[in-house]
Design a protein around this nucleic acid. Structure first.
Lengths: 265, 265
DNA sequence: GCCATCGTTTCCGATAAACGGTACGAAAAG
DNA sequence: CTTTTCGTACCGTTTATCGGAAACGATGGC
């Protein structure tokens, strides 16, 4: 076996040299999470330089607690539900989150419409933050949990559109495409070309596809490395915010998205 | 002082009752991260029920390592840069889980009942993913970790039934067939014939065998090699989802199970 | 069917880490 | 200024963690 180099190894002795068992365990999680795929025990042995029984005990502990899980039909470890939730809470509440919130507030005050910042987690659209303008007519969405099916809102379509083509295609085949209004896109062909249009134009729109009378425009938020990790969107009642007017906000949204993107990483 | 209620407390004994120091420490982080603001030592004492010196040591450890930091000009703890980075990596990593979750979401939206994906690990049933529909009456299952005894739920019985006969037999003899309701199967003979019926029919049911008023139907998820690696199940209160109605969902569950299975390999 | 690799589990003594009552200085409240 | 609350430090005790070695089972390649 050619002993393929692992891309997610830690510094030599960085984890094994740690005196505290808790920090050692956390180091294991960091390595696993950086990997970006299911990781086996022996890979983690290489990457962390920890002895086999220690590693096995640590992983079993996290698995038992729900932070980690196993790839079905295999032995490799993947991120569990509890760790996913934890990661999301971190992003919502870390110091950079307050910077993002400041930027978001600024955009809202500039354009005087509700804005939100969303990410795609496990194929679902989830809000990192949202700021509502004080209008009598507004969308009520519970803060926190799962928000809106991705195929019928600007943020969801945008975040899907910027995924690697193969993955995007696969997800498109598997998605539900439930209809909410007469304008909801329920045809996979149409949605596929919508994705192309989004990548070409650099923004996505929701023309009353989820709720009649509500329009959205979303632009990508890129990390310093250039990958699209979030979506910044403006959303409002068409009576006040017709789609054409919303699209005029795109440049300002893009400027704000650049500011927000710089807070990641 | 009116001892303002803390919104981010853990369940009583959830953290303090944990035997592993690592999991205790992780529980502290979870509480802190959920808080959404700088948190003081004494607030964490309330929220976690841990003794003061223990907490102080744990927090100092994380601060030293860069996972936590102090509020500028104060003593309260906030999320450190290293933890922020960790959170972002968790979010980035979800590629594997996305497709499964997308399919699961699709089933839930089609049949409008709660569904879950489970595997059998060391004879225990573990949920990989769950999506609950927004009904007032629903089952509360702790996130992650060991869930339900396999002998009294559809997924557990199904996954046992599809094991090689020798192993199935061995597990059957080892299991403690604890009774939960009057319908729980506690006789090994009966359970063995139940296994046969499951393999013959291709699906398993739970007719209020774990909780009165809750029924389940489960179908196998097969890898491209044909082995049963997971179980896809629908579950709901019998008032809304009588067993007969649940069984009608079997074909749709099987179609979704095929999609999920195709995501391996 | 054979062999190599990988994952899981056991044992156990030594070591070190976690524990938490107690106490003291610092800060805030009154 | 007094009093209370809070954060930090100490330290003897205890207990979990560590990890080498090795065996076993499962897996996959050939």
């Amino acid at each position: 076996m050619p002993s393929r180099a692992l891309s997610f190894v830690a510094e030599p002795g960085e984890i094994a040299g740690e005196t505290s068992s808790t920090l050692k365990a956390f180091g294991v999680l960091e390595v696993l999470v950086r990997a970006g795929r299911a990781v086996t025990l022996s890979e983690l042995m290489q990457a962390t330089e920890l002895p086999k029984p220690t590693l096995h005990r640590t992983l079993a502990l996290f698995e038992e607690a729900g932070y980690l899980a196993r790839e079905p039909g295999g032995r490799a470890y993947i991120i569990g539900e509890r760790l996913s939730h934890f990661g999301l809470d971190v992003l919502r509440n870390d110091r950079a989150a307050t910077q993002r919130r400041t930027v978001l507030r600024r955009v809202v005050s500039e354009i005087d419409e509700s804005c939100n910042l969303a990410v795609l987690q496990r194929g679902a659209l989830i809000y990192l933050d949202r700021i509502e303008v004080e209008w009598p007519l507004r969308l009520q969405i519970p803060v926190g949990g799962v928000a809106i099916p991705p195929h019928c809102c600007a943020s969801g379509k945008l975040l899907l559109a910027y995924r690697p083509v193969a993955e995007r295609q696969r997800l498109l085949e598997l998605m539900a495409l439930k209809r909410f209004t007469e304008r909801t896109i329920t045809d996979r062909q149409v949605l596929a070309s919508e994705f192309d249009r989004i990548v070409t134009s650099g923004y996505a729109v929701d023309n009353e596809e989820y709720v009649l009378g509500v329009a959205c425009v979303a632009v990508p938020v890129r990390s310093p490395h250039g990958e699209v990790i979030a979506s910044l969107a403006v959303q409002g009642a068409t009576a006040r915010l017709p789609l054409m007017r919303a699209i005029e906000f795109v440049p300002r949204l893009q400027a704000a998205a650049a500011d927000i993107g710089s807070t990641f990483g």
